[in-house]
Amino acid sequence: MRAAAVSDALLEIENYSGAFRNEDGGLVPVLHQVSYRLKTGKITAVVGETGSGKSLTALSVLGIQPPTFVRSSGRILFRSVDLLTLDARGLRAIRGSEISMVFQDARAALNPVFTVGRQLADVHRLHHGGSQRAAMKRAVEALSRVSIPEPERRARQYPHEYSGGMAQRAMIAMAALICQPSLLILDEPTTGLDVTIQSDIMELIVELTRSRGLTTCLITHDLGVVAETCDEVVVMNAGRVVETGSAEAIFTRPADPYTQRLLSASQMLEAA
């Protein structure tokens, strides 16, 4: 809280560098002095292609980077606390309750043997306590809030009975509504979904961010999604941040050659 007064950024990544240890014990550098800020209450897109390090950086925020990743420098400040110095307990206290994350494959992130409602209710009780019945009520409310039709019936269903788009809605309900975080990280939340579903999910993300005052970080390779939904953009390439700026600036006056190339490659296909 103290830091929020000083800085307008909820999360600041400073000079974060690191490498993967390969099978022979050698180090392969993958992140180079990555620095960016997530402004409070804004939607920031972290854009990059395969191997840009965009997901790896985000996983590091939650301390769930792959075990072979070795950090060489940098800080990740959340409300002025360096997350990289926290122990497992400290991280657990922040994960889920302060920062939560949505992954690309929502159906893989849901446990197949429990109903979706039960999983949401369990997470609710974990964070807020209360009775099973009250938690289930909140779970149904959350599903209804993310526009899942017939939430009572859907809550009693298992993940395999959900379509990909529906499962992603349920995961967003869990991450944004049940956990009630201040920072929501979405890692390619619409990749692999059909465009009609993708637009609906993105609208939901924007709407939840605005109405609940969330700070949202959207990791994506798709500039099209970014143009319509995000306030700030961070462009990453080959483990480096090449450009940051407001969405308008990035789309209308890209300064970095890589950003320009990426943008023109995305626009080349649009005859609009």
Partner: peptide, 27 residues
Amino acid sequence: MSSDEVMAPPSLPTSQAQVHARPRRRR
């Protein structure tokens, strides 16, 4: 299902994670 499981599904989304997931002792 604990919140840790929710936040970190069994398969990490990075491909590197899968390649390197094998514990060293086993190898």
